[in-house]
């Protein structure tokens, strides 16, 4: 196992004993990365405000009717 990951599993007590700030940052990152990759992901979205027409020209948002500052 990678040393950083091993460190990431340390108790809070031991963790606070690390004085090197850089090391702490690395550990936080490793913790976050581990947390991120652990959960399965699935979601589904729906058009709430349907855009005005499905077209392969006006891409991803029709031109707003209200003129915006250019």
């Amino acid at each position: 196992m990678d040393a950083r990951l091993r460190h990431a599993g340390m108790t809070e007590h031991l963790f606070t004993e690390l004085h090197d700030r850089k090391e702490v940052k690395i550990l936080n990152k490793a913790k976050k990365a581990e947390k991120k990759t652990k959960a399965a992901i699935s979601f589904h979205m729906k058009c709430a405000k349907t855009a005005n027409g499905l077209t392969h020209f006006v891409m991803y948002g029709d031109v707003p009717k209200k003129k915006m500052p250019l």
Partner: peptide
């Protein structure tokens, strides 16, 4: 313009 229908 989209709303979440479900998220696991």
């Amino acid at each position: 313009q989209m709303a979440m229908e479900y998220r696991y």
